[in-house]
Design a protein around this nucleic acid. Sequence first.
DNA 1: ATTGAAATTGAACAATGTTCATAAACATTG
DNA 2: CAATGTTTATGAACATTGTTCAATTTCAAT
Lengths: 204, 204
Amino acid sequence: MARRSDHTREELKILIIEESWNIIEKHGFEGLTARRIAKNIGYAPGTIYNLFSSMDDLYLQLNSKTLDLLLAILSSPKCNDPKKTPIKNMKAMAHRYMEFAKEHRPYWLMLFNLKVTENRTDAGWYHEKVDQLFTPLEKLLEPYFTSKQGKKRKIAARVLWASVHGLCFLQETGKITIVSEQDTAPDMAGYLIDTFISGIKNNH
Amino acid sequence: MARRSDHTREELKILIIEESWNIIEKHGFEGLTARRIAKNIGYAPGTIYNLFSSMDDLYLQLNSKTLDLLLAILSSPKCNDPKKTPIKNMKAMAHRYMEFAKEHRPYWLMLFNLKVTENRTDAGWYHEKVDQLFTPLEKLLEPYFTSKQGKKRKIAARVLWASVHGLCFLQETGKITIVSEQDTAPDMAGYLIDTFISGIKNNH
DNA sequence: ATTGAAATTGAACAATGTTCATAAACATTG
DNA sequence: CAATGTTTATGAACATTGTTCAATTTCAAT
């Protein structure tokens, strides 16, 4: 039996989340089970339920971690370089998003897992976190809108972002037949951004 | 014990699919279990495995049915009206897609279910079916491209479609914070289409 | 009638999330 | 230090799941 003083409640919570993270990396989301986590950290399955109300609750915490990672990437200087044009930054942003989805596929896919999604209990902080993801793109869109068009800009950011995500999603789940080998998903995202921004300029 | 001559193999297959369809409508995807299907049609659980290699196989067949429905909707005269402008038709198409996602949510969500997606065995006919979904939009895009720009048009169709889908997905899974009550997802799709098409015109 | 193939069965298996009485570990008190 | 109370860990137990497969039943052919 694990000593009660081995870890504080908070330490144990982190321990479980981190071990889950590793399991997912090795065995994918399907490989993540309460029993496996418990075994790996030297506790009994029941212990997990002392710290998380359910597996879904744990999934939510894991998603939170993923969102943190994503926000860090989208906020990084590489796609917010003042020396580059906004369009170039946007393309870099899209590129890095797709890169993230590819490299951290299981974590990224979890974000859109049905069960996790329908967890609308304490959706407050979670939704705010998702909302935060739009801000880097919103900033890049500033040059194309007047200061009075804040709402329009917000909408544009969300629409463009949803588009990039849609492209990434269909690509990553193999639902899209890429027309030719040369037209990779990032290229298509580039095309999308060029066209969309060109359209925005046109409408002024 | 159910008589062997009650149904032919093919009849039974259809029976299972239709009963599954009803179960999903009533109890969602989560409510769909081998035992429940069997019980409802008066057979034993094992029988299902005589006709489908696994539950995932059955899911694939169900998705196929959903894709048929979707194609029918996207091909319908309501969004392919020669009297209307292409843009209006596109907006109608996006609108109907989103409507479909809302009304047939469980079926629509199943299309993007991980497990079902990773079934890459007989992905041939399935992928072709998905590919078919793009053709209505491709046709609507004809006026904006020369006959030599067939490939460009294909790409545009996929990009635009992915965008609409992304919008729909984030909206339907509650991942997007709509800026205000007035800006519904269909409105945002309209904005997307207007801007995107405007951008296409610009680039010629 | 007999034989043989084909279809149906349902008990059995392994694995899952989850619960909860029990026991252990610690903190507090007298 | 002993006794008591509280918190935490446990792991067996429960209900479900997909899935398998030897046994049984059904039916056509002989």
